[in-house]
Design a protein around this nucleic acid. Structure first.
Lengths: 198, 198
DNA sequence: CGCGGTAACAAACATTTGTTTATTAGCAAG
DNA sequence: CTTGCTAATAAACAAATGTTTGTTACCGCG
């Protein structure tokens, strides 16, 4: 017997494990997910995972690093774009929602589980998150200088509100909902940018 | 010897334990916090906690239940208030931020750790969260009917953006920052409500 | 066939987990 | 002082944790 279920072992095993772990980390959290949970979901015994990965934290590290990377890759190109700051912001919001929509669970990990990285890897994750937020700060400040955005409200609060709304999207966005990512992003931009116009 | 350190046992022990646990759950998460962590921080041995509490989950349950209760108590009175829907929304946002400011760590537990309630207590927590969100939906819809709020943008997205921005506040709000809770709430209202005006 | 290497297995490892037990100190009231 | 109660301690519990070990099945290549 020994059925050797290669259940969904179509791709490279490491990728399969990463995807399964991403799903579980996103849903149950890093500390709420055991290696046995992962092994179980992937159709392996716990020890067998270590033929493909180095440690539990290595999984988290790759998820977070690569995850933030996707947001940066999607948003940063718009920062120095040649269109108006407001249009840039709108495009950045849409890009952000599209990354969330591509995999809401990964986004949950990126936004909530980075805390559980070891002290060794934590600082870099924090730094990259800060770099992401800076993208939005820069464009907003440029909009203020161009006279397109009110300067009488605290920019910091505006940015934090904007980012808060965006970072919360993985909590409710459903890839099989009626609205697609780009439409959701566009509507969010309507809501979020309307209040900062001058 | 047996120093019997009553470190900060000024109040009723159960309250002290709750506060310490709240701090730890908020910072490290429910699953990232052990009973030994709590005992350690409170100046007791692990087993001694059980003279005052029933279980680890009982701590979480009380935190979440009581926590949502504070948000409801602060916001619900404004829902059926007699002023304009927009002013109501503004007051609700301010009230929300004030509850967050009162104890950001508790808010983190309310917004992120409720998932780890046992299946027995989970449904009620979800229901109360839903009830909270409904407050905002109602007032916005009333604003639309009154012609004060644009009806051409998807209300659902507007509400989710609003709530997302608000639920994210415990992530960055500092009680000893330059701006007080009411001022932050007011500025957030400027940002978030500006975009939905008709 | 036989050989070699990859990746699975079964089993155990040392810790850590939440919680319980039996015992002892502290202290107010009789 | 003694009695009784509260709340602490020390120690242990079973279960779960991340990870390592030795061994066995598989599979392409000679």
């Amino acid at each position: 017997m020994a059925v050797t279920q290669k259940v969904d072992m179509d791709g490279k095993p490491r990728v399969v494990i990463m995807n399964v772990a991403m799903h579980l980390f996103g849903k149950q959290g890093f500390n709420g997910t055991s290696m046995r949970d992962i092994a179980n979901a992937v159709g392996l015994l716990p020890g067998s995972l270590y033929a493909h990965i180095e440690s539990k934290e290595a999984l988290l590290l790759e998820m977070v690093t690569d995850g933030i990377g996707r947001f940066l890759a999607a948003v940063e190109p718009h920062v120095a774009c040649s269109v108006s700051p407001l249009d840039r912001l709108r495009q950045m919001i849409i890009a952000h929602v599209e990354v969330v929509a591509d995999n809401p669970e990964r986004s949950q990990v990126v936004f909530h589980q980075w805390r559980f990285l070891s002290p060794e890897h934590l600082p870099e994750a924090i730094e990259r998150r800060r770099r992401y937020e800076t993208c939005f700060v820069e464009v907003i400040e440029e909009g203020v200088k161009a006279g397109l955005i009110k300067s009488d409200l605290n920019h910091r609060i505006a940015v934090l509100s904007l980012l808060g709304a965006m970072n919360w999207t993985p909590e409710w966005f459903s890839p099989d909902g009626r609205l697609g990512a780009a439409q959701v992003g566009d509507l969010m931009a309507d809501t979020l940018l309307g209040g900062i116009l001058s």
